[in-house]
Simulated assay, not measured.
Amino acid sequence: MKFVLEVTFDDGQPAQTTASELGRVLRYWGGNLHHYALQPGDGSAVYDSAHREVGRWRITADDEG
């Protein structure tokens, strides 16, 4: 299986803000992965600290993107 995380942030943000938000996404969603079976097809939206959707994570088969 493959774990895919895609996150898009505003290019106009300071680098420190982007790093802080990405760190939050990784901590929050990493801590919640135990709620999922982690099988191909599993996934969820990810949100920034303002509760705006900024990406998704998903589990795919090894040969999928």
Rank of each mutant, 00 (worst) to 15 (best):
A61P: 07
V7C: 13
L33D: 05
A37M: 09
S49C: 04
V25W: 01
D11R: 04
R52K: 13
A19S: 06
H34L: 09
R24T: 06
D62A: 14
R56V: 14
Y47F: 15
G55M: 15
W29H: 13
E21L: 05
E64A: 13
Q13E: 04
G23C: 07
L33N: 10
D10H: 09
G12D: 08
A61G: 03
K2D: 00
A50L: 14
V7T: 11
T18A: 10
N32T: 11
E64V: 05
G31I: 03
V54Q: 08
Y36P: 04
E21R: 05
R27W: 12
V54G: 06
V54K: 07
A50K: 15
V4R: 01
G55H: 06
N32W: 00
T18G: 02
Q39E: 11
L33A: 06
L22V: 06
S44W: 00
H34D: 13
R58E: 08
S20H: 08
G41S: 00
E64R: 13
Y28K: 08
L22K: 10
L22Y: 10
V25K: 02
Q13G: 03
D48I: 07
A37N: 14
T60R: 09
G30V: 14
D42L: 08
H51G: 05
W57D: 09
G41K: 01
D48W: 13
G30F: 03
D10F: 11
G43S: 12
Q39M: 06
N32Y: 04
S44C: 03
R58Y: 03
W57P: 07
D48E: 07
V4T: 04
M1V: 04
D11F: 04
M1K: 06
D63C: 07
V25I: 07
A50V: 06
F3V: 13
Q13C: 09
S20G: 01
Y47M: 08
Y36F: 14
T17E: 07
Q39F: 00
Q39G: 03
G55L: 12
R24C: 03
D11H: 02
H35W: 08
T8M: 02
D42E: 10
S20M: 12
G43N: 10
D62P: 04
V4Q: 02
Y47N: 12
A45N: 08
G41H: 00
S49H: 11
R56M: 14
V54C: 09
Y36N: 12
E64H: 08
L5M: 07
L33M: 14
M1W: 00
E64C: 10
A37E: 14
D10T: 02
D42I: 08
W29G: 07
L5D: 02
L38E: 09
K2R: 15
G65N: 03
R27H: 14
H51I: 00
S49K: 13
L5K: 09
Y47H: 15
G30W: 03
H35Y: 12
T8F: 09
R24A: 12
Y47L: 06
W29F: 11
D48Y: 12
G41I: 00
E6W: 07
S20N: 05
F3G: 08
G30N: 08
G12L: 02
A61F: 11
L38C: 13
L38K: 15
T60A: 09
S44E: 02
T18S: 07
Q16T: 03
F9H: 00
D63Q: 11
G12W: 03
S44V: 03
G31R: 00
V4S: 01
S20T: 10
V4W: 02
S20K: 11
E53T: 09
